[in-house]
Every structure is written in C-alpha cells, then in structure tokens.
Design a protein around this nucleic acid. Structure first.
Lengths: 233, 233
DNA sequence: GCATGCCGGATTGTCGACAATCTTACGCCG
DNA sequence: CGGCGTAAGATTGTCGACAATCCGGCATGC
C-alpha cells in the first residue's frame, strides 16, 4: 500500500545534495534576492526545506564562484558587483570569447554552421518583430553555440561563471538604441569567417563584434547613475 | 603553572577556520599528494588536527577551484589535469596575460618600471650563474608584478587559480634548452613597451613572448610520454 | 549629552553521532 | 573454476546540539 501523505520527511522532491546549490544559484542570478541582501542559513534551509549543512556547502561554492560574499562569523550576502568590477568582467569575457572563436574556427562542422545560420535567421525575425528581449536571448545562445563548437572546456567554464556574475547587471546593457541592427551584421560576419575555417578572420570578426560592448557598458552605467540621482560628494 | 604537553586539543597553532583551506591547498600544489590520490576526510582532519567540518568546507572550495575532484558519496581526490587540459589552461593563461599587460601599460608608474628593471638585472645574473630554476622563479615574479601594476582584480584572480592548477606539471616546461636567453630578451621588450606606456606595443611584446609556450608545452608533453614508455593501443 | 561597558538575541562555527552509500571480500552455487 | 549475491568495513552525507561570535539596545557614569 502506498501512503498518500508523506510530506514530512520522505519527500525527496529535490534530492538535496548538490541540487540545493543549483536552486540557490538560480535564485541569486534571477534576482530573487536583492544585491547585498543577507543570506541567513536557517532561513534558506527552511525555504528549500533542507538542513543547514547543505546550505552551508552551497554557500561556500557560491562564494568561491563570486556570487556571494562570506565574512567570517558574519554570514553571507549576495555579492554586489561594483561598476568597476562589471567592466573588468566584461573585459575578461571579451578576451575569452576571442580566444574561443579561434578554436571554433578550427573545429567547426557543416552541421554546426547550419545551426548558426538558423540562429541568424531567428535573430532577423525577432528584430523584425521588434522583440529586443528575444533577440538578446538568441544572442546568448549564439555565443554559447560557439563555445560548444570550440570544445574548450577550460575557457567555457570560466565564461559561464563570468556570465552568471554579470547576469544581474546585464539588463542595463540590453537596450541600446540602434545597436541591434549592426549587431546582427557582426554576427553574420562571424559565421562567415567560421565557414571559411579561418581562425584569424574569426578572431577579427569577434573582436569587431565585441569592441563596443565595454563602451556601451560604461555608457549604461553612467546614465544609470544619473537616473538614480547621482550626487558626487 | 604552564602545562608542557597540551597536544590534545588546546593547540590553536593554526586557527582552524579558513587556514585549513590554505594548508590543504599548499599541500596539493606543492605535490605533497600524488595526483589522483584519495583525500579521506578523517585522515586529513587528523593530519591538520581539526574536525571534519572544516576539512569538508576546504574540499568544497578546492573542488570549485579545480584542484580537487569530488564525486558524490565517493569522496575527493586531487584532480589530475590531463595533457589536453594543461594545454587549455596555458591558452587561457596567455589570453589573460595579454589582456592584463595592456592595462598595465596604462597604469604603470616610474617606480614600477624601476622594479621591473631590477628584476631584469636579477634575471641576467641568474642566467650567467647557470641557475635556470632561480630564473624561473624570477620569471614568475616578473609576471606577477605586471599583474599588480594592471590592478585588474578579476583577471588577476583567474590567473592565480589557473597558475595553481598548472603548478603540478609546470616542472615539465621549465627546462627548455636555449629558450632562456631569448626569453630574457623578450622580457626586456615588454619592459620597454611598458616604459613607453604603449598598450598596443605591450600587447605585441607579450604576445611575442608567449607565442612559443604552448608549442613548448606540447613538445614537453610529447617527450615526457616517450620517456615514460608510451605505447599507443 | 556623550562615551563606555554590559547584557540578550540572533547567527555562524564546530563537534559528535547516526544514516546512507559505496567498496571489498567472501562464500555459495552452477 | 568463475559469476553473483551478500555481508562487513570504510567513507561520506546529514542532523541536532552546543559553543563562539557579533550586533544592537540600554544603563551607567562622567
């Protein structure tokens, strides 16, 4: 006979071990917690109905990953990335994207190219529909596809963590008037260079594509400051 | 009266909290553990006379850092970096070094330049004394000085962890016949470019300097294989 | 009024014990 | 003699309780 209500403890809905980490991580990058908000272990434990132990382990990981900051005896809070750090992250991201695209050029297969071209078409569609958010999503997928092609685990892993760190301020850089049209063109150039299996050209195309993002980010930060009523003291 | 033997518990020689992490880390990168050796929690706890708790936390960190591999319910072992991964790490390292030297060129101070020149002289000396190991150490210091000049925390932190990962196979790449003399020359070129505060030139000089290291590493891996009695199956 | 010191609540850090899981060795049977 | 289930041992994962630490408010004294 099967019990129908075992809600107390025998509820392995979530498989506590390493899943707690994913849940917490997701909650943080999706902005469910405010930047700088305190993360009290017992609260989190209740929230994900698990013990403090697994929460603890997850927090240590997230700390090492740069998503939360832990001070001895003072607990953990979701880490606030400063404007300056945001720029640094972006700079590193660019360097790695350029590194990766070169190896992608060496390993790209016809099927990969086909996928990339499909992405391009999708992007075109979103743009025509006036759906910049959808475009942004596709943009992310496009780049990640290149990561996969390059088969460069080390760089890919780093890029992934950097991305998660920057996710919380990314929204600032999405909506840049007039950039999208040009962005699509640059993506096309990248695909072309990849088609030719030309590492040098691919690198150039990627460099070109990313050359503006830091400027854009700085601009976004600046306007954001003004909006928020910035007052230098 | 002071007890002379309190070896049991009241021995806060080490301040357990986060220091355990450093000790373990040090033990791993210094090769005190064999690659792939199992790291049993209780053993480590006794060894550093602390509890399993802090060991656990340290292992989680080291896992995230890539120095240790942990499988659920199967414990931790010091991670063995494959030849392929070693190459990937080196590639990323190069990309970041190039990124960093550019910012170093923008921020370098006269005092920094003086320090770098002193390093250069020291290197010359070591070379004349036929001390390649000392040279290698100075080499590391030289690069780290550039990191400090650039004040690029994000990239520096990544470089540091990459370095620790590669420390265990670095010995293979140290002794490359005839490279050292040329290496010194390249270092000199870097310092010159930095003196001119020219980011472009600095980047070129660094690129030049690092252009051979991957080839060298591949070569080293190859010879190492042969020596170890490699037999393709 | 202000600095200082102290107490109480809240939170993290650590320990010990137990449950869950994996590994190995052993014996059974075909 | 070899495959296979099973039991014992070893090791990790989790929980609960307690100690250590930090934070804030409050009283005290100058």
């Amino acid at each position: 006979m099967v019990k129908t209500e075992v809600a107390t403890k025998a509820t392995p809905l979530t498989e506590a071990p390493a899943d707690v980490y994913r849940q917490l991580r997701e909650a943080i990058v999706s902005g469910e917690f405010q930047p700088n908000e305190r993360l009290v272990e017992v609260d989190l434990a209740r929230r994900l109905n698990t013990g403090r132990t697994s929460i603890r382990a997850a927090l240590v990981r997230l700390d090492q990953e740069g998503l939360v900051a832990r001070e001895p005896n003072r607990g953990a809070r979701v880490r606030l990335v400063s404007d300056r750090e945001a720029i640094e992250i972006e700079q590193v991201r660019i360097a790695l994207e350029i590194l990766i695209v070169r190896y992608a050029a060496e390993k790209v297969s016809p099927a990969d190219l086909e996928d990339l071209r499909v992405d391009l078409l999708e992007m075109r569609k979103r743009l025509d529909q006036g759906d910049p958010l959808g475009y942004s999503e596709l943009n992310a997928r496009f780049h990640q596809r290149i990561w996969a092609i390059a088969e460069h685990e080390t760089a890919t892993k780093l890029l992934a963590t950097l991305k998660s760190q920057s996710l919380r301020f990314q929204f600032r850089t999405i909506l840049r008037p007039g950039r999208t049209e040009r962005s699509l063109e640059e993506h096309r150039a990248i695909v072309e260079a990849l088609s030719a299996r030309d590492p040098e050209a691919s690198e150039r195309a990627m460099t070109q594509h990313l050359s503006h993002v830091v400027e854009t980010l700085k601009w976004a930060i600046e306007t954001n400051r003004r909006q928020a009523g910035w007052r230098p003291r």
